[in-house]
Amino acid sequence: MSAPNKSYDPVEVEALKPEEIERMRDEALAAFAAAGDLDALAQAKTAHTGGTSPLSLANREIGALPPQAKAAAGKLVGMARGAVNKALAARQAELEDERDARVLVEEAVDVTLPHDRVPAGARHPLTTLSERIEDVFVAMGYEVAEGPEAEAEWFTFDALNIGPDHPARTEHDTFFVQGREGTEGAANSGVVLRTHTSPVQIRSLLHREPPVYVICPGRVYRTDELDATHSPVFRQVELLAVDEGLTMADLKGTLDHMVKALFGEGIETRLRPNFFPFTEPSAEMDMVCYVCRGASVGNPDRPCRTCSSEGWIELGGCGMVNPKVLTACGVDPEKYSGFAFGFGIERMLMFRHNVEDMRDMVEGDVRFTRPFGMEI
């Protein structure tokens, strides 16, 4: 048996030569320095400090050396690996600082901005105008009354002295709710989408003892096409007053107060004869143009788009309640009289705020609603 090779020189092992270890160390340091971000540094770390890296493989060679050679080789490899780990830690700290600085710039938060970034909303102008009108009449002692939008024909037509042959009772003007019979029996269901809020007046007379003073706002339905001045669904407000001794003078005074409250002082009204089945006598109510105050009439130098230089704007229909309507509701027309009027809220909004297209009111565009804010 031969004796141990005590003269074995570890320098003869290629991986443990000092110059080879220095080369491995320098390659690792260069790779760390060249890493531009943490991902690249992680790849360099695996390549130069992992289990299959050159220095790790060289470290494995030390175990095969004789005892007297292991100390020097271990010290040489350990110093190289220590330098590599130190350089890796320094480069990682440097790249992390760069990343944090970049994030602070790219994801900076301006603390001076308002904390609430949700824009303020706005109520729909039709809602606020309707409530404004209600407030005017509630202050005069009127009560706000409501009723169903799908209404019986009797409340919508018969009780209002609108005969069975009246054009308004055809499918060309009224939406009929389909009956159980099917499509063919739809017109005979006896239920329609109310064409005005007058049925609420009828219900008010049936459920209240005179005197009755009510205002009836709400949605109504007619078979109109949606365009700049018409809509199949729109809002009306109607008024009914039934008491002893009421006359057209009371009606005129009520209308004058309403337009002054909504359009300002100095607005005059006038009544033009007309016909409605549910009022007798009946009239169309006009108010003087709130823009030109009549100054544009016959004056080509001062034209007015609001009233088309006519000086007056039509608001709606009115009149004294037809005695036949009072009788249908069980009210004695010999003892009581009444007056009523109604107008479209959309039309009133168009007058007050120069809205030219009714479609703007129903399309839901916040750019139309927001300028009105919370109040009109």
Rank of each mutant, 00 (worst) to 15 (best):
P119R: 13
P119T: 00
P119G: 04
P119Y: 13
P119Q: 10
P119D: 08
P119C: 07
P119H: 11
P119A: 08
P119K: 10
A120K: 14
A120L: 14
A120R: 13
A120F: 11
G121L: 08
G121C: 08
G121N: 10
A122Y: 12
A122S: 15
A122K: 15
A122W: 14
R123M: 02
R123V: 06
R123F: 07
R123I: 10
H124C: 02
H124T: 03
H124K: 00
H124S: 03
H124Q: 00
H124M: 06
H124L: 02
H124R: 10
P125R: 09
P125T: 11
P125I: 15
P125N: 07
L126T: 00
L126A: 03
L126D: 01
T127M: 05
T127K: 09
T127V: 13
T128R: 04
T128F: 03
T128H: 02
L129D: 05
L129H: 08
L129S: 06
L129P: 10
L129V: 11
L129A: 04
L129Q: 03
L129I: 13
L129Y: 07
L129C: 05
S130G: 08
S130A: 08
S130N: 12
S130V: 12
S130C: 09
S130E: 11
E131C: 05
E131R: 06
E131D: 12
R132W: 03
R132C: 03
R132K: 14
R132T: 12
R132N: 07
R132M: 09
R132Q: 13
I133E: 03
I133F: 09
I133Q: 03
E134Q: 14
E134Y: 08
E134S: 15
E134W: 09
E134P: 11
D135N: 14
D135P: 12
D135M: 06
D135G: 15
D135F: 05
D135Q: 14
D135A: 15
V136Y: 03
F137T: 15
F137V: 15
F137Q: 11
F137K: 13
F137N: 11
F137Y: 13
V138T: 15
V138E: 05
V138H: 05
V138N: 05
V138G: 09
V138M: 01
A139H: 02
A139D: 06
A139M: 04
A139N: 07
A139K: 10
A139V: 11
M140P: 08
M140L: 15
M140G: 14
M140A: 14
G141V: 11
G141D: 00
G141I: 07
G141P: 07
Y142T: 12
Y142A: 14
E143G: 11
E143N: 13
E143F: 10
E143V: 15
E143L: 13
V144C: 06
V144F: 01
V144S: 01
V144A: 03
V144Q: 01
V144I: 10
V144E: 01
A145C: 04
A145T: 05
A145I: 04
A145L: 06
A145H: 00
A145G: 03
A145Y: 07
A145P: 07
E146N: 13
E146Q: 13
E146Y: 10
E146C: 09
E146H: 12
E146M: 08
E146K: 14
G147N: 03
G147Q: 09
G147H: 06
P148D: 05
P148K: 02
P148R: 04
P148N: 03
P148G: 02
P148S: 01
P148L: 07
E149I: 07
E149K: 04
E149Y: 04
E149A: 00
E149V: 08
